[in-house]
Amino acid sequence: MTTVSANQRTLRKLLFVAVLMFGFGYALVPLYDVFCQITGIRFDTQANQVNSTGTQSITVDKTRWITVEFTGNTMSGLPWEFYALKKKLRLHPGQTMVVNYFARNRAAEAITGQAVPSVTPPRASKYLKKAECFCFTKQVLAAGEGKEMAVQFMVDPALPKGIDTITLSYAFFNTDRVSANKYGGSAVSEPPKQHGSHRQVTENTNG
């Protein structure tokens, strides 16, 4: 009967390994954040704020031109129109610029949204410094209200040489889950809707 107890021991050890690996799956979540912070690939809204006084001390690099493109979209569950009023502009690294986005609430009630920025190419993200941005806070729009929202930013002169075009994109989310569900955020998917959400996934992976 020694085999039986040996089998029980093996069973217990291996079950422990399985539980440990289940935990490891969850441990990947914080590990991933740490990894993203070290490599700077995740666009952290807080980390990229610069105060206006700091901006002055940076010298403008007149020898370089950078094209910055602006885009934005709303995620399902947020019944807003949302777009950049200027599609692109050219600037020198170190120059501070302001660009406006426009949002209008199409719903018949006030809705709170949060914009999440992302930058392409990803390695440019830590060089795009925002002094002011509507994405720093939640935005509340009353029923039918439209509003212009500003982003004040500059491109750090330390931007690697190979990059001459940067795309700044915003995804606007409904912050309230109940309200998001109400506007189709996670409703039962029907074929046309699936098509819509498929497109969003593609955009997401690109951003």
């Binding site: 399985a18 539980v19 690996m21 289940f22 799956g25 990947l28 979540v29």
Partner: peptide
Amino acid sequence: LLAAIPVLAGAVTMLLTDR
């Protein structure tokens, strides 16, 4: 299997709690 499948179980559990 022992090392990989629990991670998948974790991933779909996260999907479930997200949903």
